[in-house]
Structures are given as structure tokens and as C-alpha cells.
Design a protein around this nucleic acid. Structure first.
Length: 933
RNA sequence: GCGGAUGUGGUGAAAUUGGUAGACACGCUAGACUUAGGAUCUAGUGCCGAGAGGUGUGCGGGUUCGAGUCCCUCCAUCCGCACCA
């Protein structure tokens, strides 16, 4: 019997599907283990070999955990709302649901071929109404919640309303920018409209006018992380700034908890650092500067009522302030600018607003600014400080204004030099002629009550004094911004929101889901309204008030909680039941790409914390451990076209001609050798191609490692490899490629090595068509090989070293082959070890070993017995001055002293000593001998 | 500029705590076998050298009996952030 992988694999996939082998039970005596992959967006292109890499690793781990006696949850689904299906709909008119359905079917087909142990009964799709009903429901909870800083958690708006009605907002400590204080009576006297507007300032999901990244080509708003270098991530269209009324999520309320929560999770430092950086915490204090009116300019009278509030991380340098800078968009700019400077300030503001965010950032070297004519007063010295505007100050960070300390900040220093503003030095014994002194150490001078204090101490004293004088207070700022939650797209979740007199209201729970209505076209309306504005009233399954919300939710809405839905995917009365959420709890192992560091992974943590605050789940971090698989790069092939001709020259001779490299489809290339006829047939323009070949008549292509993409013709699909070599080979080969986390080039050359390994394994069972398995007790060498392998495989799995495990299996099979071992006793254990990696052939061999069909996934994982590894002899490497020169086999029982004596007695030792006496002999028992001479 | 990661044969890589550098595999060389199979088997394969031997983990230093591994300087590549006060 031969190793017929295609029949074996087909048979077992059918068996698993029919018997629901991998269905997870919601309750079990076994401990639970949740292994999750980041679910894919089902794109039209299907899977390439890079996609399954993480899925294979997680599948191996899930299968391993099952063998270790865990109740494993290992689900899969689709993040099926998204732009490509919508773009396709715009072009063809085909409803995105149809496109999505087709793509999902193709993905499923491809995934099935690889033999994953997913529990498909739990599949979720973010675009199905049964799923997005609950996405809408969670949105409702966010709308109906505020953040209580006193309890440091989200609470319901109902609770907040009760306080407002009985006591006003004076004692409410909420995360909000709303500063007006009102009493209970005042609140109760307000109109519904006024109350709604105030509550909006507290809600975690809120409507606000915000500056957004507007992409005219896509007709939609994009999140910061969907914009790359001023272009849209999808499509590469230009993006501009625009003020729009948008739904936002008050994620800033969770900034500190998102930061501290990172300490509780087992993620790589790289991802944690990206998130920390994104949250961007900085500690300092706010300081209020009052404005001075000028006697000579009557225009400035009354200015002293205004204050400019700044945020600084260096309150210790307050006496170094020699000017202030406001962002051009700062609301006080118009008010404080004197008549003399009006025109120049207006011109500067206009110039700044015309520059895109991207230009402003790209233009760091070019220092620009404009004096406003106004002066502020130093809070301690009372000195007059000129107030400038400059676009290096960002309106969206801190207070949009800075106190400039040129001696301690390089940007302030450059600005001062540019505009000849005096620079005051407040650092003792530090030269600032060339550059600012930005170290946070040293001693402060020229600074009144801070004189003689070390920087750290001066910060404390400065904050104390500022607070004591009512000039400001200690404050922490975060760079993290609230997340815009509206998109002007069709293919996303509709909001469970309607408007009456322009006040937004939620639909009732029993009206959910609000189903995506049909529209005639998937484009924005002529007035720039989102596509849903095209829907006729009758097209909505729910319609209340004057109009429905026509924005849809962003892509990250559905993916921020899908891991919870897998726990209870069919629940019609809750997004997940409390019991099931308690049972399955956190994701124990999450595998996916690191590109989601500031998007999905941050939002999912935010929603998890929110749902935890409201008591729906009992954990506040979703992903306990995470591994980020590296990208698999493609290997592109090139042909070299001789300039102005249809001649193509082989790689080794291309330097003799003037050529242009052209990407050629990798399916036409085998081991760099081009299929000439295939190439001519590939594209009509090459039908009459001529070739300048190697001397043996072959045409050899050049190659380069690049990202896989259709346009580079270097996409390798898993399907053809599965057909050629089988899923078990593909699974093992993808693991064998290198460490999971590493970026690595794809190359099919090595796949035969893995395939040959499986054939060699098969030959331990069948040789020349007949079964060679025997019941005889295994000899010592075979047991040693087996237990050595058990140990290595277990250890390597625990540290997620999937690649070295493949070689462990190869070594094991090589040794057993050399030993001519066909003992059931040994092979049975080996097959269980291998089952997570090569599940199909393992199932087949398991049956051949006499077990019931389909039971290997519940077998017991072998345990390592060190007794089998005990050695009688150790081959000691002997080095001289650290260089290994010879080996000597000595009994394992020898003491260090005995080893030394035995080694010194060797004639070879004397030879290497060249007659010199050894100065020192180091013996590490069981390991090595080093002789220093 | 800041933060993170990586750098080892012709190629993918291994070396978990400092202890034989290059396991395992691809490729290549030579040979065997044959029912010609993306077979199988044997031997070899870091570099220099006929050999003895020398040399070798991005560069340069250091610690140590011993360094791919620890410390310092520098270089290169990749990823993320970037006027964040």
C-alpha cells in the first residue's frame, strides 16, 4: 500500500465533518482552552499561502491542547463587512451580500482543504443580521453610558440622569469636556433638546462635529489608521481634513486602563510598545497665562479677562518662558490679535489651513509663525510675554497652546532663533549657544523659588506652587484621540438610531436588528449624503421619527467583539450568555498579524473593558496571550526584454544587453526555468517572443523577494500545493519555513523535503506494499529515540517553536528507519505526537495501528520518561584554550576529577599540549572539558 | 529624531540556562539501484588549504577557562510612531 495522500486526506476530512469531531462543548469536566485566529476578510482573490500560516500554527496548538485533555474552543468566521465588496457593487451593481457570499464559499473551500480542526458550527459573519443585531445592541449600551472617573468605570446614563435630576452636575466626576455647572432645578427646567445636547457630552458613543479624514474619492470618512501618508489605505486616494457631524467613541476615557492593562497580557514588547506609543501618555501640568492689555492699543482692552491655558511636561522650566505659541486654529486667536497684525495673522491662518496635515508634518524643517501683537503675563514674574501663532503647535493636542521655553525645548529654540526672540538660560552650568538643553537632569537657576533645585525636585515644587496659587494643576495628557465611528458607506452595520427634531433616539431592543435597506445605487447621493440616504422609507425594516441614521459603522465595530460571539453564536436573547462567557472566558491563545496593533487590538480591548464595566462579562482583557505571525513574501520571477524588441534574454546573459525586467507569472517557472511555450501563450503580445537562452537551451529567470500581489504574478495559492503534495505536507512545510513570527520569503523548492519525510514515515509501516508493523517489544535505541522526541516536541510546542518540531520529527523518523524499528509500541506514540501537524496521515496510521477510526484527536499525548535517556557513556568534547580538538567517550558515572585524570592520560591530550603544562583544567560534568595551557 | 525587531553556509534555518557553531531540510558533487517514481539508497558538501592545519556567526572592542548567546561603540535592513509641548 502506497502513501496515497489525496485519498487519505479526502477520507478523513469527510469523517471529521460527518462526525463533528471538533465540535466544542460548552461545559465539560476538562479544563477549557480557547485558541483563536484573527478572522479574515473574505476577499475576492481567495487565500494565498501566507494566510494559512497563522491558522496552521493555531490549529496545531489547538489539536495539541485537545490531546493534553483540554476542552478546546477553536472557531472561525468572517469579517465580512468591508470596502472591496462595496467597490465591486459600485462597479457592477451586484449586491455586496452576493459578492460576500461567493467569497466566503471560496474561502471555506480553501480552508477545508487544509484540514483545520475548526468548530464550524460556531461560524460567525459580521455582515449577517443575526450577528450585527448584537453589534447594534452594544452600540446602544455605549450610547447609554458615561464614564465615571470616581469609580473609574463606565456607568449607565440612567444613573447619571438620576444624579442630574436630584443634584445637578456639580459633584459629577465624569470624563467629559463639558464644564458648565448646573443645579438640579436648572437641569429639570431644560428642554429635551438642551438635555440631549448636554448628555451627548457624556455619552461613550456620541455625536460631535469633528475634524475627519475625508476621502472624496471613496466618499467616506477614514480612521487615522486607515490613512497612510495622506492616502487611503484601500485604493490610495487622497485624503483631506473636513469638519463633519460624526459618531465617535469616547475611547480616551479608557486611555489609562488600556495602558495599565498591557501589563496583564502576554504579548510581545513590540506590540505593547506600539500601543503605549499610540496612547502616548505624558505627565505634567496645566498653567494659565492671563493676557495683558496694551495701553497704546485701545483694541486690546478687556483682554485681561481671557486666559490662555497651556499644557507642559516641564513645569520646572516655567521661568524660561520667553514667548507663547498658539495653534493657528486656536479659538482665542481672532480675539487677541491686535489691529496692527490682523492682516498678517489672517494670511498665516489661511496658509496653514490650506496645507494638509501631511504637508504640515512633512515640512518640519521649515519654521513658520506670526506674532499676534498680544502679550500674556508670566504667572509668577508678571513679565510681558509675546503671543505668537505657529503651525508646529497642534490644535488637537493638549490645549492647542504652548508656553515656549527655548532653552529647554529644541522646537522652541529653533522658533526663537528664527524670529530673534531672546533666549533665557535657566540651567546651571549648561551652554545653550548651539542648541536647547533637553535632558531632564541638572539644576535650575534664574528661576525665583526654583533656584538651586534639581530638575525632578523643581517639577514637584513648580506643580505645588502652581496649584497653590490657582494657576493650574497637575495633569496627564494622552495622545490617543476619540475614535470616529461613522462611515459614509453602504456595506456596514446600520445604526439603531433615528432622529426626531434632529435629536437622536435609540430604537428599542425588540426592534433590532435594523436591517441594511436596499438601495438603487451604492454611491453617495448628489447632496453628498451617505448611500443609505437613497433607501426609501419602505426599504427599512424599522423606521421611526423623521429619518433614520444613514451612516454605517466602521469595519472595526464587528471585529471588536466577535471573539465573544463564538462562545454562544446562536443566542437570540443576548450577545453572549453570562454563563458561557464565564466558562470560556479570555482567549488563551490569539494568533494574527501585527498590523492590527493600533486598530482592532485596541478597539477590542476597549469594548471588552466596557462590557466588563457593565457586568456583562467577567474579564477586562480579551486576549491573554498573543503571537503575531510574520508575513510570507512572494518570490517574483523576471524575464529580461531586450530594449525595443520581442527578444528575451536569459538571466546570466542579460548584462550583455540593454534590458527591462518584466514580472512573469510564477506558474510558468519551475526552478527558475521558464516554460517557453507557456510564456508565449500567456499574453498575446508575447506570442511571437524570441529567446536568447543558456547554452543548454534553457531560459533561466531572475528572481526577487517581494510582497505577494496579483500585479507581480507571484501569488502562490495553497490549493495547487495541496493537490500536488497534500495538506499534511503543506501544513508541515509552512511550519518548517522558519520561526512563526519572522517575515520570510516563500519558496516552494524545499517542499519535497517535507513530502519525502511523510513518505519515509509511511515506510515505517508499509514497505514494498506490505505491512511491516510488528508487536515485538521495542529495543532500547528505539525507545530512546522516541522519548527524546517526546521531550523535544513537547518543549518546542510549549514555546511555539513549530519549525524546530518539524525537524524533530524528521530526526526521529530518520533514526527509527536506521534502527529498522517497526514496533507498534513506538510508532503508536510517534503518530500521536505527529497528529497535530499532519492530522490526516496520522488518522490513517492510527487505524492501521488497530485503533477505532477518528479517535486520534482524543488520544492521550505521550508522556516523557527520562529513564530511557540515561546514558552509560558520554562523549566529552575536549577543548584546548577554548578550541575543540578531540572527543573522548567516558563512563557517565565518572566524577569531575576522574574525568580530568582520564583526559590528561590521553596521548592526544599530550600532543595538543605541545609539552607545556596545563595551567587549569575545567571539567563541566556531562558537558565539556576545557584545558588552559 | 524616537521606539521595536533582525543580521549565522549557495538557500530556508538550528544552537531553550554562556559549554562540540551550522542540527534538520533544500540545492550541489560523486556513485548505486530500478517495475522511471516529483522515487530510493551510499558518500561528500562553511570558507582557505594538496595536506597538516588555519579560519569563521554584520564591524570594532570588552567580560570569561570558554561568547552566535552577556556588556559597550558603530554599520546595515525591516516595522511602527513622528513638530505630542
Amino acid at each position: 500500500m502506497e502513501y496515497n495522500f489525496s485519498e487519505i486526506e479526502k477520507k478523513w476530512r469527510k469523517h471529521w465533518a460527518e462526525n463533528q469531531t471538533f465540535k466544542a462543548e460548552d461545559a465539560s469536566d476538562k479544563p477549557k482552552f480557547y485558541v483563536l485566529d484573527m478572522f479574515p476578510y473574505p476577499s475576492g482573490a481567495g487565500l494565498h499561502v501566507g494566510h494559512p500560516l497563522g491558522y496552521i500554527a493555531s490549529d496545531i496548538y489547538a489539536r495539541y491542547k485537545r490531546l493534553c485533555g483540554f476542552n478546546v474552543l477553536h472557531p472561525m468566521g468572517y469579517d465580512s463587512f468591508g470596502l472591496p465588496a462595496e467597490q465591486y457593487a459600485i462597479q457592477t451593481g451586484q449586491h455586496p451580500a452576493i459578492t460576500t457570499e461567493q467569497n466566503v464559499a471560496r474561502y471555506r473551500d480553501q480552508l477545508d482543504k487544509i484540514g483545520f480542526s475548526f468548530d464550524w458550527s460556531r461560524e460567525v459573519r459580521t455582515s449577517s443580521p443575526e450577528y450585527y443585531k448584537w453589534t447594534q445592541w452594544i452600540f446602544k449600551q455605549l450610547f447609554d453610558a458615561w464614564y465615571n472617573l470616581s469609580t473609574d468605570k463606565a456607568e449607565t446614563i440612567e444613573q447619571l440622569l438620576a444624579i442630574f435630576k436630584s443634584a445637578g452636575n456639580a459633584n459629577v466626576n465624569a470624563h467629559t469636556d463639558y464644564t458648565t455647572v448646573f443645579s438640579a432645578d436648572e437641569w429639570n427646567a431644560k428642554s429635551e433638546q438642551e438635555q440631549s445636547a448636554i448628555l451627548m457630552e457624556y455619552r461613550l458613543a456620541y455625536l460631535a462635529d469633528s475634524w475627519v479624514n475625508w476621502c472624496p474619492a471613496l466618499g467616506t470618512v477614514l480612521a487615522n489608521d486607515e490613512v497612510i501618508n495622506g492616502l487611503s489605505e484601500r485604493g490610495g486616494h487622497p485624503v483631506e481634513q473636513k469638519l463633519m457631524r460624526q459618531w465617535s467613541m469616547r475611547i480616551k476615557a479608557y486611555a489609562e486602563r488600556l495602558l495599565t492593562g498591557l501589563e496583564k497580557v502576554d504579548w510581545t514588547d513590540a506590540i505593547k510598545d506600539i500601543q503605549r506609543n499610540w496612547i502616548g501618555k505624558s505627565v505634567g501640568c496645566s498653567v494659565k497665562f492671563s493676557l495683558a492689555s496694551s495701553l497704546s492699543d485701545p483694541d486690546t482692552s478687556g483682554l485681561e479677562d481671557n486666559v490662555i491655558e497651556v499644557f507642559t511636561t516641564r513645569p520646572d522650566t516655567i521661568f524660561g518662558v520667553s514667548f507663547m505659541v498658539l495653534a493657528p486654529e486656536h479659538p482665542l486667536v481672532d480675539e487677541i490679535t491686535t489691529a496692527e497684525y490682523k492682516a498678517q495673522v489672517e494670511a498665516y491662518k489661511t496658509a496653514a489651513s490650506l496645507k494638509s496635515e501631511r504637508d504640515r508634518q512633512a515640512d518640519v524643517k521649515n519654521i513658520t509663525g506670526q506674532f499676534t501683537g498680544a502679550y500674556a503675563l508670566h504667572p509668577f514674574s508678571g513679565e510681558k510675554i509675546p503671543v505668537w501663532i505657529g503651525d508646529y503647535v497642534l490644535a488637537s493636542y493638549g490645549t492647542g497652546a504652548v508656553m515656549a521655553v527655548p532653552c529647554g525645548d529644541q522646537r522652541d529654540y529653533d522658533f526663537a532663533k528664527q524670529f530673534s526672540i531672546p533666549i533665557k538660560n535657566i540651567f546651571e552650568n549648561v551652554a545653550i549657544e548651539e542648541a536647547a538643553y533637553t535632558e531632564k537632569e541638572g539644576v535650575i537657576t534664574n528661576s525665583d523659588f526654583l533656584n538651586g533645585l534639581a530638575v525632578k525636585k523643581a517639577m514637584e515644587v513648580a506643580i505645588q506652587t502652581i496649584e497653590a496659587n490657582g494657576l493650574g494643576k497637575g495633569k496627564t495628557n494622552y495622545r490617543l484621540r476619540d475614535a470616529i465611528f461613522s462611515r459614509q458607506r453602504y456595506w456596514g452595520e446600520p445604526f439603531p438610531v433615528y432622529y426626531k427634531n434632529d435629536i437622536p433616539y435609540l430604537l428599542a431592543d425588540n426592534q433590532l436588528p435594523v436591517i441594511l435597506p436596499d438601495v438603487d445605487k451604492y454611491l453617495p447621493t448628489e447632496d453628498g449624503e451617505p448611500p443609505l440616504a437613497r433607501a426609501k422609507q419602505a426599504a427599512w425594516n424599522q423606521f421611526e421619527g423623521d429619518r433614520m441614521e444613514t451612516n454605517t459603522m466602521p469595519g472595526w465595530a464587528g471585529s471588536s467583539w466577535y471573539f465573544l460571539r463564538y462562545m454562544d453564536p446562536k443566542n437570540e436573547t443576548a450577545f453572549v450568555s453570562k454563563e458561557k462567557a464565564d466558562y470560556w472566558n479570555q482567549v488563551d491563545m490569539y494568533i494574527g498579524g501585527s498590523e492590527h496593533a493600533t486598530g482592532h487590538l485596541l478597539y477590542a480591548r476597549f469594548w471588552t473593558k466596557f462590557l466588563y464595566d457593565l457586568g456583562f462579562i467577567s474579564f477586562d482583557e480579551p486576549f491573554k496571550k498573543m503571537i503575531n505571525q510574520g508575513m510570507i513574501l512572494g518570490r517574483s520571477s523576471f524575464v529580461y526584454r531586450v530594449k525595443d524588441s520581442l527578444k528575451f534574454v536569459t538571466n546570466t546573459k542579460k548584462d550583455n544587453y540593454e534590458t527591462t525586467p518584466i514580472h512573469v507569472d510564477i506558474s510558468l517557472v519551475d526552478n527558475d526555468k521558464l516554460d517557453l511555450e507557456g510564456f508565449k501563450a500567456w499574453r498575446s503580445e508575447f506570442a511571437n517572443a524570441e529567446f536568447i537562452c543558456e547554452d543548454n537551451g534553457d531560459y533561466i529567470c531572475g528572481h526577487e523577494v517581494e510582497k505577494m500581489s496579483k500585479s507581480k504574478f507571484n501569488v502562490q495559492t495553497p490549493d495547487e500545493l495541496v493537490d500536488k503534495f497534500g495538506a499534511d505536507t503543506l501544513r508541515m512545510y509552512e511550519m518548517f519555513l522558519g520561526p512563526l513570527e519572522q517575515t520570510k520569503p516563500w519558496d516552494t523548492k524545499g517542499i519535497s523535503g517535507v513530502h519525502n519525510f511523510l513518505r519515509k514515515l509511511w515506510r515505517l509501516f508499509y514497505q514494498d506494499g506490505s505491512l511491516v508493523l510488528n508487536d515485538a517489544p521495542a529495543d532500547k535505541a528505539a525507545l530512546k529515540t522516541l522519548h527524546k522526541t517526546i521531550k523535544k516536541v513537547t518543549d518546542d510546542l510549549e514555546r511555539f517553536s513549530f519549525n524546530t518540531n518539524v525537524s524533530n520529527f524528521m530526526i526521529c523518523v530518520n533514526e527509527l528507519t536506521d534502527q529498522k524499528c517497526h514496533a507498534k509500541e513506538v510508532l503508536e506514540q510517534l503518530v500521536i505526537l505527529l497528529a497535530p501537524y499532519a492530522p490526516h496521515v496520522s488518522e490513517e496510521l492510527w487505524v492501521i495501528l488497530g485503533h477505532e477510526a477518528g479517535t486520534i484527536s482524543t488520544a492521550k499525548f505521550p508522556t516523557f520518561n527520562p529513564d530511557f535517556l540515561v546514558e552509560d557513556e558520554i562523549a566529552y568534547p575536549v577543548s584546548f584554550n577554548g578550541k575543540m580538538r578531540l572527543k573522548v567517550a567516558l563512563p557517565a558515572t565518572l566524577s569531575a576529577k576522574e574525568v580530568e585524570e582520564a583526559v590528561m592520560a590521553l596521548s592526544d591530550t599530550q600532543k595538543w599540549l605541545e609539552g607545556k603544562a596545563p595551567k587549569k583544567v575545567i571539567v563541566v560534568p556531562g558537558k565539556i572539558v576545557n584545558i588552559v595551557y
